[in-house]
Amino acid sequence: MRLAQEIARANPGRVTADMVDAESFMRFSERVGVFSVPLTLINGVEQVVGAVPEPQLMQKIRSAMQ
């Protein structure tokens, strides 16, 4: 969560970082296929399971934004 927030702070006009309480947003969680947390959903198209380091998350972000 912290990494996502730090990325948002670098460009708050373009980036939104949400913490989603999966228990309170159950429909959304089920719809996107959350089976394990933490899970980071990137623009609705890429998923990263677990807490990953910056290079790995950025690789997924670049992929999602191509």
Binding site: A8, V37, L41
Partner: peptide
């Protein structure tokens, strides 16, 4: 836009 959503319990 870049939308990051971190699902947690």
């Amino acid at each position: 836009p870049l939308h990051l959503e971190v699902f947690v319990t």
